[in-house]
């Protein structure tokens, strides 16, 4: 039951790309936000895979930090999204466009 490290990396790359694509395509703010989380988790997977490759624990510690920061970001992000929902009554990024001259 040995999975080569490249498999993890490729999976991570695919996840990251899906995240980018979703970020660019999705119109709902929450979905956009979730695609960012997906990207972060792809990064985490990369870290873990590389940590295994180098037998270095630092990669796993990094994952810890990333998760924490992602959580902090999520909290702030939710607050911002709530604030904008309360003023604009929409979560569609196309309708959040007060500033396009």
């Amino acid at each position: 039951m040995i999975v080569p490290i490249s498999a993890y990396l490729i999976l991570a790359a695919i996840l990251f790309s899906i995240g980018i694509a979703a970020f660019l395509i999705k119109r709902n703010v929450i979905s956009v936000f979730m695609s960012i989380e997906l990207m972060l988790n792809a990064v985490n997977l990369t870290f873990v895979a590389f940590a295994h490759r180098w037998h270095a624990v630092s990669g796993q510690i990094f994952v810890f930090f990333v998760m924490v920061v992602a959580a902090a970001e999520a909290a702030v992000g939710l607050a911002i999204i709530i604030a904008i929902f309360r003023t604009r009554q929409t979560l569609n990024v196309d309708q959040i466009n007060l500033m396009k001259n």
Binding site: V32, I80, I84, T87, I96, N97, M99
Partner: peptide, 10 residues
């Protein structure tokens, strides 16, 4: 303001 915040955040 909140719009700017959201964009910056995302």
């Amino acid at each position: 303001g909140s719009e700017s915040s959201l964009k910056y955040f995302l």
